[in-house]
């Protein structure tokens, strides 16, 4: 379907994070096909291990981190586009039940 070589993917168009599907080193391009069918890219600000998340939108501390189109946690710090998003900058939060 697409000639672009991708090394990342996005699950839902509302997501603020995408997922690396190859190990990507800091300074390299992360490339994925957006839900609009267009190739997108950002520069990795840190090493991103395979299947780990990186930011595709800037997030401020306390913002929802969105994957699968749903809240998976809160930004524990300001997060920049291209930054590794994981336990070091995401806080668990239990939505009211």
């Amino acid at each position: 379907m697409n000639e672009v070589i991708t090394n990342a993917m996005i699950i839902d168009e509302r997501d603020t994070v995408a997922v690396a599907v190859e190990p990507v080193e800091a300074g390299s391009k992360l490339v994925w096909i957006g839900k609009d069918g267009e190739a997108k890219e950002v520069t990795a600000l840190s090493n991103i291990p395979i299947y780990h998340k990186f930011a595709i939108k800037d997030m401020s501390k306390g913002d929802f981190v969105v994957k699968y189109g749903e809240h998976i946690g809160l930004a524990g710090a300001d997060i920049k586009i291209g930054e590794h998003v994981h336990v070091q900058n995401v806080e668990d939060h239990r939505e009211e039940l």
Partner: peptide, 18 residues
């Protein structure tokens, strides 16, 4: 799970209920 890239329980469960 965390080494594999899953950060929170919400995220893990969202993958399952997909």
């Amino acid at each position: 799970n965390k080494t594999g890239g899953l950060t929170t329980l919400e995220e893990k469960s969202l993958g399952c209920i997909h």
